[in-house]
Structure formats: structure tokens, C-alpha cells
Design a binder for these strands. Structure first.
Lengths: 373, 373
DNA sequence: CAGAAGTATGTAACCACTTACATAAATACT
DNA sequence: AGTATTTATGTAAGTGGTTACATACTTCTG
């Protein structure tokens, strides 16, 4: 007990920040609720925002209220029914849209609202004074926090940190015979989930040595604590072109950047082997994978219908010379902007980076590297 | 819609401050909950504080946890049972107190906690960064707000403002025959609630002219919008002493300062009639009333058992000369402290005022005015 | 040492919502 | 014009607590 004082939530600081904030908010809400109750107006505090909205808007639909009050639509329906019981609102069918139920304040409803206005006024003043006493622009800070969360939710913030830590523990290794079964297992997992294991898949997955390694290729594996969680293969498909194929990350560990680690190794391998271009087959169905490939510089070179394969294939490719040029261009742009903004890492700069990268992508995307260079 | 933008809660500013705060807190909590869920640890976020407390405290009772986590004891019991089902805690009977149920983490519970520690660490850092981005000492501001509320709750803040506004609309009038029934009605209301209407009450309440007015007395009434909501009587009980009696405020309007308004008028009346001392009868049962009388300077002069009356009576009295002296003393003290602190109305000064008044009361309370002067 | 008062736990019912799912009507897309 | 998709509402069940009340045990008081 002595280790944590008498208020654990407070003691936990940033770790229980949300809980503490909620506690404060609930204590304030409870107090306001008590005020209304003791005034014995025939009215419940939870209705207040809805009453306010209807007082200023004549009629509103359920969804409109739901959006305005940021509550789910069942909540609006429940409140509306409670208020209807007290004869504070009536329901009207929308003439133009038979689905819509319009909610409208009755005369009694308007009266109640006008009746509680003096109370509202005092609540507002009491809150204003309370906020002033706290010595900071509290509403401003809240607004800032809301905006910060809109830019990047707390979920994303924590998750990104966790993924980064996780990636540090991943080891990428090359093919060895004892990993043969993992190569097959990992690929069969997603093939079965999205498509079927076709004969050509079966041949490659069962004979990695013959089908990949012996074709001037390599297979990489992602290891996490002795567990094989991902793989990718790369092989020569023509004298100056390498193909990337059989990329797989087990479901439990997806969206954590393992694919990127594997791709990095595969592309590096091809570069070492003096590849001039890279290609791969994928499918529109595999959105995540396509985004990953695009981020590496792959562009769609040939979109087939569902003719030859059951899974309608998208061919993607990338010219490694063009990529080199692009990197050079980016570096120059980055240096220029670096000079402009100095060494700060302020948000403004990040926004600028985003715009810059978007712009680069816009220039680059329409080009077909195969023909442009 | 256009009048209120797309977020009513934000639009309402100070009026919906608590709701907005709660919304922010809940969105943060939901995000953290999602992190835990996706980590698929066999653990729910709501248990976290309890797990933390038990990890650092070996065993804790239900009430101890309830105080530390600031949750009600049924909440603790519910969480504890859920955690027991997952084999995270066990229950032990306290050897010294058979009522007590001690909650203790199992080995599995400790393991789970250690397992989520890296997640906790990232949550803490993500929150810290988030708070830093918001550009103010948010935890400090929250602490300040909590303290501000501890000093005076939002309920009290709003209520005091409302009561003040309400009192402005109260009119105090003197006796007139058409108020005769109100005098009786208001007094019968509380007499019936706390005691019974005894013959002596009945006589006074039914003959106000003869029993009060004709004894060099007066009856005052509090009016609110044509409604008679309170009354008090004052009459001469000996050549230099006046008695205050039959004070009543209808239940609906109690705790709003009406009693004080009535007492003020009654005491003023007695002063005008050159009274040297005031006296009244009341009962320990009527706590609120006794506090009011004390705040006017009345002190207990004679406490009878329940002999003569059914309601065991407390006699209170006050020497008006002594009161005058006391006021003089207070004025001097106030002047002195005014000079010391200047014209500010900072909280420090209010605290000082409190101490000062407490001190004055301590000096004054033990004195029996009847004998001291 | 009995009885009153206080404390620790247990339990039921409620509260203010939410999630998940269902259905009907409107609109978009061949 | 017919079908697929989207939108608006309805409904049941769940969630994370709370309040109110009951019961068992302990401590205080005369």
C-alpha cells in the first residue's frame, strides 16, 4: 500500500492517464446530474444535448442526431423513446424518405428547455470559473489532444512502437534443408485462405532446391524466437531479370513489418546478382501485399483477366536503374528541404515530408520504367 | 445544423465540458483495450489496475482495493471473480478477521503481469509523447482540477450560484391576517415530519395575533412568486429578552438560504425593539436549524432531557451586547489581515479567512455569554 | 457481557450506453 | 428495369460499472 499511496490511478501517471481523465469527467457529470435531480424538473441530464439540438433545429432524424451528438444510433433511439414517454418529443414520418423518422420537440419539450436555461447558465459559469481556476486553457488543450488523436490514434501510436520493438527481435536467415517444410507450410497457409494450392504451386513449394536455389535464387526466412514466421523466394527468370515469389507471413504476425524485412533482403540479393530489373506476380485480392510492393517501387506492368490462373494475376515490375535514379532525385530533394528546415523534427516538417513524398510518387507512378529508361 | 456545426459537444464549450472530457477519455481507453485484445493475452484492460495493485502488495482485501482503485466494492468483487475464473487470483480467509477475504495473485497472475509489462511500457511512452505534443502540463492541470473539486465540488459551485439567484427573488413580508393559515401550514409540515403537533403548538399556530403580535412580536413570511415558502416568529418573552420561535421553511425550498433571510429579519426586529438578549428552543434532531442558529451567534444555554416536551429541547440564547463586541473584534482582525494581504482575493487569502474564523469560533464557543458579560 | 453501532462482503437490479445483427427503403449500376 | 449496394432505423444482448439493500462479523459502550 505504501508503495502506491492512496490513489493508484494518480500514482500510475501516464499509464493510467485515460482512467484518471474519465474519473474526473464522471465526477463532474455526476454533480451536474445531481443538480437537475434536486431541481426536480421532469428531465434527465443525458437528454440535455438532444434537447438542445432539437430546440435549435425544429426536426432531426436519428442519424443526424447520432452524428451531431457523437452517440450511436441505438442510443438516440433509446433517448428519443424515453423523451416521448415524457411527452417531450413527437415522431414524424419524413415525406421524401419513408425510412426516416423525424424527431421534433413538443410544446412541453420547448418549455422544459426554457425552464432549465437558467440552470444551464449557472452550470456554464461555474464551469468557466472552475476552468479558469485550473490556470490553463483547458478547452484549448483538449482541442489540441482531440486533433492529435485524429492525426494518429492512441492505438496506432502504441502499435507502431510495439511493432518496432518486435522487428528488432526478428532474424532473417537464408535457405537450409531443414527449413524446407516451413517454406511450404507458410505458403500453403495463405494460398488456402485466399485461393487454392494449384499444381504449379505444389511443384515449387515441394522442390525449393530445384525450383529456386538452383535457378541462381535464394529463399529467406523470418525467425522469431525459434519460430519460422515468414518467407520469400527470389530467382533468376531471364539473364538480367529476377523474380520475387512465394512471399508469405503467418497470419498472427502480419501487419508488423515482417514482409518489408523479407522484401529488403530479397531485393538486396537481386542487386548483388547484378539484376537490372525485378518482377513478380500477385493479385488485386492481396491489397496489403500490393501496397508493400508499390512502396518498394514496383509498378503494375500487365494486368491479366482471370484467364490462365484461377487467381487473376497482376504482374508488377521495377527497373533497378530507374530506382537508383529515383533515389538520387529523392536525396537531392531531401537535402534541399533539410537545408530549408534545419535539423528540427517539428510536426510541420513531417507534414512537409508527406507532401514531398506524395509529390514524388505522383511524378513516378505514371511512368513505366521498362520504356522510360 | 449549421447553427451548431458538426460536433455539438465541442460547440457547447463550458456547458458540455464534462461530456467532452469523458469522450476523450473513453476514446483513449478504447484504443488501449484494442491493443490488449489484439495481443490476445488472456487478460482484460479493466483488470489492469487491480493486477498492478496485487502484483505490488501480495494480498489485499476487497475494501482496500476499492479505496485504492476508487471503485465501489461490488466492482472489485466482480473483477476478482472474473480473474479467479481465469486462475489469475485466489482468495484467502483473513485469520484475524473472519469477514475479510484476501485476494492474492497466483503464479499465473504474476506471469501475465510480467508478460504485459513491455506493452505497458510502450503505452506509457506513447501517452507521455501524446501529452507532450498537447503542449501543456496536462497531468498537472488535471491534478489542479482534482484539487479544486476537492475544495469545492461542481455540485456546490452550481448550487451556490443558483441559491444566490433564487434568494434575490425572495420577498420577506410582515404578518397580515390573510397569511394566518400559511403560518400554521408551514409549521405543521415540519412538526408532523419530525415530532407531533402538541397542544401548545396548536394554540400558538391558531392564534398568531394573540400569541405573537400582541406580545410585542412579529411574524415574517418568505414569498417566492406568490407562494408562501417560509416563516418565523419573534416575540417578547421578558422585558429585555425576545424569543424566536416557529421557524419553518417548506421542504422543497430548504437548504437555499431562506432560513437565514428570515432569521436576519427576526433578529433585526428584536434589535429595533432594544432587546438585550435573544433565546429560542430547538432540538438536536434539527441539525440544520441548530447550525443556522449557531452561525448567528446563538449558543446552547440549557439542554433538557426529554422531560417536559416530547421533542427533547435544547435552549439556545445569545447576548446582543456580546454579539456587538464580537463583531467589533472580528472587524479589527479583518482589518489587520486586510492590511497584511492587500485587496487580493487569492485562494491563499480565503484559506486564511477560514483559519481566522475557525479561531474566532474557538475563542467564542466555550464562553457562556450570560455569565461572561 | 449484552446490545448498539460500525465494518466487510455479498447480491440484485439498474444505468447509460455499446456492439452486433436484422430489415426496409433508397440509390447506383449495369 | 432489375439487381447490388448503401443508408436509415429497429432490436437484443452485452459492458463496465453503479446504487441499494442484506448479512455476517467486529468493536464500542454502558
Amino acid at each position: 500500500m505504501s508503495k502506491t499511496g492512496t490513489d493508484l490511478i494518480k500514482h500510475l501517471g501516464e499509464l493510467a492517464f485515460a482512467t484518471r481523465l474519465k474519473r474526473l469527467a464522471e465526477s463532474l457529470q455526476a454533480d451536474v446530474g445531481r443538480i437537475y435531480r434536486e431541481m426536480n424538473v421532469d428531465f434527465e441530464p443525458k437528454w440535455f444535448t438532444m434537447l438542445y439540438a432539437l430546440y435549435h433545429n425544429e426536426t432531426m432524424s436519428v442519424i443526424e442526431l447520432s452524428n451531431l451528438l457523437r452517440l450511436t444510433h441505438p442510443a438516440i433511439i433509446q433517448f428519443a423513446e424515453q423523451m416521448q414517454e415524457k411527452k417531450l418529443v413527437t415522431f414524424i414520418k419524413d415525406k421524401n424518405d419513408a425510412r426516416k423518422k423525424l424527431i421534433q420537440l413538443t410544446a412541453k419539450g420547448k418549455n422544459i428547455f426554457e425552464g432549465i436555461e437558467p440552470i444551464l447558465h449557472e452550470i456554464e459559469i461555474a464551469n468557466r470559473e472552475f476552468l479558469r481556476e485550473s490556470g490553463a486553457d483547458v478547452l484549448g488543450v483538449i482541442e489540441k489532444m482531440e486533433k492529435q488523436l485524429e492525426l494518429k490514434s492512441m492505438y496506432k501510436r502504441v502499435n507502431e512502437r510495439l511493432a518496432k520493438n518486435f522487428r528488432k527481435e526478428i532474424e532473417i536467415v537464408s535457405y537450409s534443408p531443414k527449413l524446407k517444410n516451413d517454406f511450404k507450410r507458410l505458403n500453403v497457409e495463405w494460398l488456402k485462405k485466399y485461393f487454392t494450392v494449384e499444381p504449379i504451386d505444389e511443384r515449387v513449394l515441394s522442390n525449393p532446391k530445384k525450383e529456386i536455389i538452383d535457378k541462381d535464387g535464394e529463399i529467406f526466412f523470418a525467425l522469431y524466437k525459434d519460430e519460422v514466421i515468414g518467407t520469400v523466394a527470389v530467382k533468376k527468370s531471364s539473364p538480367k531479370t529476377f523474380e520475387i515469389l512465394k512471399m508469405a507471413v503467418t497470419e498472427k504476425f502480419q501487419s508488423k513489418g515482417i514482409g518489408r524485412l523479407l522484401m529488403n533482403r530479397a531485393v538486396d540479393y537481386a542487386k548483388c546478382k547484378k539484376a537490372k530489373s525485378l518482377e513478380l506476380d500477385t493479385s488485386r485480392k492481396l491489397e496489403g501485399a500490393m501496397k508493400l510492393y508499390e512502396s518498394f517501387g514496383f509498378r503494375i506492368s500487365d494486368e491479366q483477366g482471370s484467364e490462365s490462373y484461377e487467381r487473376c494475376t497482376v504482374k508488377m515490375s521495377m527497373d533497378l536503374n530507374a530506382l537508383f535514379f529515383l533515389l538520387l532525385l529523392s536525396s537531392f530533394l531531401l537535402m534541399w528541404y533539410g537545408a530549408m528546415f534545419g535539423a528540427h523534427t517539428a510536426p510541420a516538417q513531417n507534414v512537409f515530408t508527406d507532401i514531398l513524398f506524395k509529390a514524388i510518387e505522383h511524378i513516378v507512378k505514371p511512368m513505366s520504367f521498362k520504356t522510360a529508361f
